[in-house]
Amino acid sequence: MTVRHDTLTVRWLGYATARLSGPETTVYTDPGRYGVLTGEWQPPEGLDTRHPAGPAYDARDGDCVLVTHDHHYDPDGIRRVAAPDATLVVYEGVGAERAGRPPSPEALAANEGYDLIRIEERETVEAAGVTVRSLPAYNDPDGPHAKPDGSVVHPEGFGVGYRFVVDGVSVLWPGDSDVLPLHRGLDVSLFLANVSGSVCMDRHEAAALAEALDPDLVCPIHYDTQSFLAADSRAFAADVAARGVPVVLDEGWA
């Protein structure tokens, strides 16, 4: 379905892909992977999910496309959402060879005619009229999502999150991260909560962060795409609502 928030329309298209569109500007987060934009995604076996599942998506209307880290880099997904004159904001640590999904952001931008901004871990840039601030995103090796040996799926420096402003509306997409102290001081109108737990903040941690942020709206994304990303979205929504924070689930397809 389509969520309306302030001047924006918001759609979760699957995995980490969200479309945020205002009167002047359209932004996408982390487009593609796992068949969510090609119409090939299938629900994980045994998982009761309302994850979006639609036909092939090929809108090519995004003015700005944000990519947080290797796991969310998908050149085909970018092509499906980016307008011909789009600006790509890609974390400097993203490597196409390491991710196994060529071409590189530089080659993709050159081939398709996009502008490309490689953003550092703590930097603010202007991209297609969107103010984009990058934030560290990682799993604490002493935190709840570390393995017994202290290793983590998302070590510090591997990726980022973004706080960005679309047509006057501030949005937080924390990327694949634990809840970090820096999150709690952000001024956010829309919180795209990552609630999938095993590789990032879980629904309990994300609900506590939502209470601390006190945004105008919370909309969870990045869950139920694969079995290891399973989350109880309804329990999350009930928890957030009980804390007095508006919340919406954008599940299904429209």
Rank of each mutant, 00 (worst) to 15 (best):
E112Y: 05
S151G: 00
A242V: 00
V36K: 12
E40F: 02
R163F: 00
V94Y: 04
P220K: 10
L229H: 01
A86M: 02
F191Q: 10
R234L: 12
G14Y: 11
V160H: 11
A86S: 12
E24G: 08
D250F: 01
E121W: 01
R234N: 12
V160L: 14
L135N: 14
E106V: 11
V245D: 04
G46F: 08
L135V: 12
I117T: 07
R203T: 11
A96T: 01
I78G: 07
D149L: 05
T17W: 12
L172I: 08
R243W: 01
V10D: 02
D63R: 09
N194W: 00
G244A: 02
R122P: 02
A235L: 15
L209F: 09
L249A: 14
V160N: 15
G150R: 06
Y223M: 14
V67F: 02
H71V: 11
V67G: 03
D214M: 01
P174R: 06
Y34M: 08
L37R: 07
D115N: 15
R50K: 12
L190D: 06
H154P: 01
L116R: 06
A83W: 09
G54F: 12
L229G: 00
G54Y: 08
V240M: 10
D74M: 13
D140S: 15
A207C: 04
R118F: 01
G244T: 12
M1N: 13
I221A: 05
A208Y: 03
L13R: 14
S151F: 13
G95T: 00
L192E: 11
P141F: 08
Y138N: 02
P75E: 05
L116C: 00
R98Y: 01
V165L: 06
E97I: 02
V27F: 10
V10C: 04
T49N: 13
A235T: 09
A208H: 04
E97Y: 05
N194M: 07
E211C: 05
E97M: 10
E120Q: 05
G143W: 06
A83D: 11
H71S: 09
L209Y: 09
T2W: 14
L217Y: 06
D224Q: 09
G32F: 12
E126N: 10
N139R: 07
D187W: 02
L209I: 11
L135I: 11
V90G: 09
G113I: 02
G168Q: 11
E40L: 11
G175C: 12
P246D: 04
P181T: 10
D58G: 00
G77V: 11
S151W: 00
G46Q: 09
V171N: 05
G185P: 14
G150S: 12
R234Q: 12
A127I: 03
S196T: 01
L180F: 14
H69P: 00
A242N: 15
L192K: 10
E126M: 07
T87V: 13
D140M: 15
L217F: 10
V247G: 02
T17A: 13
D224Y: 07
V248D: 05
L108Y: 02
G185C: 04
Y162H: 14
R33G: 00
H5L: 08
G113Y: 04
D167A: 09
R243H: 07
R122N: 13
T9Q: 14
G161L: 01
E92A: 15
P246M: 09
M201V: 10
R122A: 13
D63T: 04
E126L: 09
D6C: 03
A86I: 11
P43F: 15
G113L: 13
G22T: 02
